[in-house]
């Protein structure tokens, strides 16, 4: 029984701590699918975390906090959008600049709130759905979580559906593959890309909100501690697919969480930390064989500004 409970808890902890990675990577998948590479996830997450923390603290309502995180994340991504889309600037550099700017701004504003904690009713807590939550192994994992956890799962499914089964999805994917064709259809490439970029920013902000309003309901500087970069790795690990991002995020989280049990029997936690990245490279290599290429979804026009041919 002890082992079962242990495994249940590893799953529970792993999947909980994977939620911010999932949310941020879902957004980035849309941005990248439309052709916009935004390396500023870490900065947007940090600002999302701060703004949702502050909004929850001031209003006492975590949902207002979530809204603030979404809006601020989107606002920051707008800077990246303008530079990448309208000004056709370098997306790698702009993303790095966005990370610096976001982390810096969150640290400066956050100084006022250092050490503040959210009161219980201003944060999300995992709530057990009884009696489902007492099902062995999976009960706690799926029926004792906070609202944002479920939102992550729902978003992954919905975003997968939109991307793969709707016209909007086709337009977004085509914009990332062959923007000229989209343009020829009379659809505005910049509009699609702005939309995807803003969604990416909003969801990165939501990922940050999860950290500060649910997971660690206190403001501490550098609360993201590099998780924005892991989310970027996850996008590739998932081969730009929302459902695979869901599974990948949980895999990343569970590998991390099981590390604490494995280290007790002598495994190097440092090497375990590197494992997800190694897996990503392996997946990239194995998954990149010619037959897989078509399913892989690596957007052909990723990171390339769209220029209308001069006529």
């Amino acid at each position: 029984m002890m082992e079962l409970k242990l495994i249940e808890n590893i799953l529970w902890i792993g999947m909980r701590s994977a939620t911010p990675l999932l949310l941020a990577s879902l957004g980035e998948i849309y941005a990248e699918r439309s052709g916009i590479l935004n390396l500023g996830v870490e900065g947007m997450m940090a600002m999302g975390a701060l703004s949702s923390f502050v909004a929850s603290l001031l209003t006492g309502n975590p949902w207002i906090g979530v809204l603030a995180g979404l809006l601020v994340g989107a606002a920051l991504s707008l800077i990246h959008g303008i530079i990448s889309i309208h000004l056709k600037g370098n997306q790698v550099v702009s993303g790095l600049a966005l990370t610096m700017f976001g982390l810096g701004l969150s640290s400066v504003i956050g100084r006022i709130y250092i050490g503040n904690q959210l009161p219980v009713d201003a944060r999300f807590l995992p709530v057990p759905f009884k009696p489902l939550s007492s099902i062995p192994l999976i009960g706690k994992v799926f029926f004792e979580q906070d609202p944002l956890f479920y939102m992550g799962i729902v978003l992954a499914v919905v975003l997968w559906f939109i991307l793969n089964r709707t016209k909007i999805g086709i337009v977004i994917r085509s914009t990332g593959e062959n923007p000229a064709a989209v343009d020829a259809m009379g659809i505005s490439v910049p509009k699609v890309r702005y939309g995807a970029t803003l969604l990416g920013g909003a969801l990165a902000g939501l990922g940050g909100a999860y950290l500060s309003v649910s997971y660690n309901p206190a403001w501490i500087e550098n609360i993201t501690a590099g998780r924005g970069w892991i989310a970027l790795a996850l996008v590739i690990f998932a081969l730009w697919d929302p459902i695979r991002a869901l599974l990948g995020a949980y895999l990343f989280g569970i590998v991390e969480a099981s590390g604490y049990t494995l280290q007790a029997i002598g495994y190097s936690q440092w090497l375990l930390n590197g494992l997800p990245y190694l897996l990503t490279i392996v997946i990239l290599t194995v998954g990149a064989t010619e037959s897989m290429r078509r399913r892989m979804g690596a957007p052909a026009a990723l990171g390339i500004p769209y220029e209308r041919e001069e006529r």
């Binding site: 002890m2 409970k5 242990l6 249940e8 808890n9 590893i10 529970w12 902890i13 792993g14 701590s17 950290l211 997971y215 660690n216 501490i220 550098n222 609360i223 501690a225 998780r227 991390e256 969480a257 604490y260 049990t261 280290q263 007790a264 936690q269 440092w270 930390n273």
Partner: peptide, 22 residues
């Protein structure tokens, strides 16, 4: 349990939860 960082609330939380479950 060692988390390998002087500051990482996410990892500290994982380690604490994993200890509690044991």
């Amino acid at each position: 349990r060692e988390i390998g960082a002087w500051y990482d609330p996410t990892k500290a939380r994982q380690a604490a939860e994993s200890l509690i479950s044991e």
